[in-house]
Design a protein around this nucleic acid. Structure first.
Lengths: 111, 111
DNA sequence: TTGGCATACCTAGAGACTCTAGGCACAGGC
DNA sequence: GCCTGTGCCTAGAGTCTCTAGGTATGCCAA
């Protein structure tokens, strides 16, 4: 690997907020979220399953999302997630935090 | 604590890049970096000593910065850090990564 | 029919990072 | 004499990411 992902990054953190954002638009299941994340961000955010599935379980454990199983013909069953009221609140707060952090980081980095 | 820092954030990650950015402007010491970070970001980024000092040691261990002790009159000794060539390279790469991640995250979050 | 690929979920464990909560030492002001 | 500010440090807990597996189904091509 050339200069792949070496060195310090700002992007290792808490990706739950991104999942919350996508789920606020519509119900989705884990595998779908991974693809949406990659597509929407044009490849900039490409999370492996081992990151996303545990993250979803944490969000559900914390009451921010609610999951339900759905059996589909000609495909393995899916677990669809939707935001809870608590999830909407957390999303709003997280968005504020993100904008604040982003501005601060940009200023520090010199645009 | 009311709604302090609860819920998912995007800001928990790798703060070394911010330190690298500040140090690319001029030599600074740990305690000074903490204040600069807070001041420059207008309080948005306020790292405790327990985060910054280990981070500086990691950056030095990885050869991205080089430290030197300086004794000052009427103050405890300070350890000033400067970027190495490797550090400059890492900073450039990190900056690119950050912009890419930021754009992707913004798109996912819906601006 | 048999092999491979895409879909879709899951976990254990290693490694990395943040932060709390301390500690040490010196200078200056009240 | 004591407290605050400066300036460095560490141990340990907790959390998160990611690698590297595993399971199961359906479809298509050889």
């Amino acid at each position: 690997m050339p200069s792949d992902g070496e060195g310090p990054k700002l992007s290792r953190g808490e990706f739950g907020l991104l999942l919350l954002s996508l789920l606020s638009k519509r119900e989705m299941y884990g595998y779908e979220l991974i693809g949406q994340l990659r597509a929407t961000s044009e490849g900039a955010i490409d999370l492996p399953e081992g990151t996303v599935y545990p993250a979803l379980r944490r969000l559900e454990r914390d009451g921010l999302i609610q999951g339900r199983w759905e059996t589909v013909e000609s495909a393995p069953r899916r677990r669809y997630y939707a935001l809870t009221p608590k999830g909407h609140t957390a999303l709003a707060a997280g968005r504020r935090d993100w904008h604040r952090f982003r501005s601060g980081a940009d200023t520090v980095m010199g645009t």
